[in-house]
Design a protein around this nucleic acid. Structure first.
Length: 307
DNA sequence: AAAAGGTTCAACCGCGGGTGC
DNA sequence: TGCACCCGCGGTTGAACCTTT
């Protein structure tokens, strides 16, 4: 026998709450506490189901609820927690005092999710969306040339782009080695990139190719550095963080020491985390994510089709 | 100024876990 | 053990509001 919805009973009001109803609910809970939500409406003199009362109280009337716009720190926390917890809104809300799961869920869907998509980040996996561009067709094409790739520069992760251009530009034995590495890693051949760790593993293998480092690659952009926490997950190989646990810009200064030591450990690999360690500018804060996670998608590209 | 389209968010719905009988 | 009930969760809806044409 199925359970009937609690609001099916005749005479129970639905829809927006009136100030009078709010007042009754607040007064009752202040006097008696929430207690049994099933019996609360009757005792409080409300023509509502218990579920509706509970929702109204927990999402709106509770005195400890913080109203207003989400701060930068709150948004940063939400993104980081979502990368680990996924759509566990109640778990995320538990770490954000004064915010409800409903509020966070709404904010995610209406603001953060869209911003991540705009910046070329998959809001589910928190990894760059290389599925926007099938590089395999480029690499395998006999019609392939640099100019065709240049036109796509704005679409892809600048680091991946740099490596791809180098591969195509260097017509010597090293390009064969590079191609092998690419194929082994399925990095560029099987978009989308599953996670950023793949990229670092791939990059590290390239370093092993004689006479080749990524430093040799002409920078296509203003040398955007790799993002700190991703690098950390690579360096901590064997103690991998969850695949989705990519760092976003972190304002917590205590993390700097970790990054610094990691950076020192890799000082012989031409790799700098300096910009990750630096305090984000207002512009960076505006984007609410690190530069690594920022991939410009041309306005002409309708990414809604990929959603 | 008004219509159309887009966005936001409070509220609802259905499901599943936990608990008591 | 099975059933009924309570509660909380995540997904969805739709009215209100905002922006664009």
């Amino acid at each position: 026998m199925g359970r009937s919805p609690c609001c099916d009973k005749n005479g129970l009001k639905k829809g927006p709450w009136t100030p009078e109803e709010d007042h009754k609910l607040i007064q009752y809970i202040q006097l008696h506490g929430p207690g049994n939500w099933r019996t609360l409406p009757k005792n409080a003199g409300l023509q509502r189901c218990g579920k509706s009362c509970r929702l109204r109280w927990t999402n709106y009337l509770r005195p400890d609820i913080k109203r207003g716009r989400f701060s930068f720190e709150e948004e940063e926390t939400i993104i980081q927690l979502h990368s680990v917890l996924g759509n566990k809104w109640s778990a995320i809300a538990a770490r954000l005092p004064g915010r409800t799961d409903n509020e966070i869920k709404n904010y995610w869907n209406t603001h953060i999710r869209k911003r991540l998509l705009r910046n070329g980040i998959d809001p589910v996996t928190h990894s760059p969306r290389l599925d926007l561009l099938d590089l395999s067709s480029l690499l395998n094409s006999t019609q392939f040339n640099l100019s065709s790739l240049l036109g796509l520069q704005a679409l892809v992760n600048p680091e991946v782009f740099r490596l791809a251009t180098t591969l195509l530009a260097s017509h010597n034995e090293r390009s064969d080695l590079l191609l092998q590495k690419l194929q082994q890693n399925q990095l560029l051949l099987n978009a989308p990139l599953q996670n950023q760790r793949q990229f670092f593993q791939f990059q590290n293998q390239i370093q092993e190719i004689p006479n080749f480092t990524t430093q040799n690659v002409p920078s296509s952009t203003s040398s955007q550095p790799m993002q700190g926490q991703v690098e950390e997950s690579y360096l901590l190989n064997g103690q991998m963080l969850p695949p989705q646990n990519y760092g976003y810009c972190n304002s917590d200064a205590s993390d700097n020491s970790t990054f610094q030591s990691l950076n020192n450990n890799r000082s012989n690999q031409n790799f700098s985390l300096d910009s990750v360690l630096s305090t984000p500018t207002e512009d960076e804060k505006e984007s609410y994510c690190s530069n690594l996670m920022k991939f410009e998608i041309p306005a002409s590209l309708n990414f809604d089709d990929f959603m």
